[in-house]
Design a protein around this nucleic acid. Sequence first.
DNA 1: GTCTATAAGGAGATAGAC
DNA 2: GTCTATCTCCTTATAGAC
Lengths: 206, 206
Amino acid sequence: MERNNNIEKRILWVAERLFLEKGFSGTSTTEIAKAVGCNQALIHYYFRTKEKLFWDIFAPKMEQVVEYLDAPLDNGADFFERITNIIDFYFGMLELDERLAPFIVNELIMSPSRWEFFRERFLRSESRSRAFVKFEKMVEEEVEAGRIRNVQAIDLLLDIMSLCLSTFIVAPMGYARGECDSNARKEYLQHRKEAVTILVLKGISV
Amino acid sequence: MERNNNIEKRILWVAERLFLEKGFSGTSTTEIAKAVGCNQALIHYYFRTKEKLFWDIFAPKMEQVVEYLDAPLDNGADFFERITNIIDFYFGMLELDERLAPFIVNELIMSPSRWEFFRERFLRSESRSRAFVKFEKMVEEEVEAGRIRNVQAIDLLLDIMSLCLSTFIVAPMGYARGECDSNARKEYLQHRKEAVTILVLKGISV
DNA sequence: GTCTATAAGGAGATAGAC
DNA sequence: GTCTATCTCCTTATAGAC
């Protein structure tokens, strides 16, 4: 029936929003059901457990992120442009939902069992390996050619990811001061993206 | 009585450890009581609510952090040395307990009510303001003197804090690969501290 | 497929004996 | 001050009617 399909999708959609807003343990299945407009038992009918619901929501998204990871590496002539593209890519992804960055830190990195699951399923896969190996090779070439200072690929990637993620994690702090409008937010993010890009590009220059 | 004092302190000590290990909502008062070796009611006898217990533990620590924040600014002749000192200071602080960084992100930044409380109580205080104003002045002077590139103090501080915090947040990821011994951890932290320092110093150079 | 009802357990907090 | 017992509420998950 089409109606079933609708409810199942609505559960996924509503649960995703609530998980992002209030975290996994902060969201009850009762609350999800209420927001969906059905009863709590139906959540379990479709997804059996809350944990399975979690993965049904976020596993496809993670797959996408890993899949698209090496896309920015293909375009752009010189290395500095590619780094700029990567930062652009991460910002664009995290900008889609401002709760994504805190959520990643909270529910993925903070939870050992989840992290292990994620690592096994995504980071050991072929696509992720290829993307990183590609990046690593590129960095080594640039170092040897003397176009950037001696730096390890893993450190560079970690620096970039840290600066991007933390921009969005720290973002709510600024907006607690009263400037909550979306214009100020956009300006802040644009400003931070530039600041991060400059820091990284200058930071790896010879 | 001295015995009362002992139990009260032991509750504080044990609860701190458990909060850091498993987070606030992940730790029950029953669990704290069990670890202390008393019954659950006693927790509430001494601290009334779980939330008050939380602040009785972490408010003094936050006070300390804010108080000591401008200490690294006083010693060290040139600006680059001072920046190195600040990074050193943050690493040293976060190294005291590896759970501190995730905890800060989780329990403070992620929780709007907690963050508001923290901001009101500590960030608007005189000591914090003075420390940041001092730092801001210093950066402006360096920029005007042409010793560093044009950069805003708030961005610089944010970059530094982000890189330091994320080093410790990402740390468990590396150790899921099997290298869990404390030697590897120390080496990793030392390596990251150097990488962060180099990136920041080069990143603000002219 | 969707519901009501309920099981089974855990949480924080309180009352009152000692 | 420390205990046991208990209240109240909320959680996930399941059983079974329709």
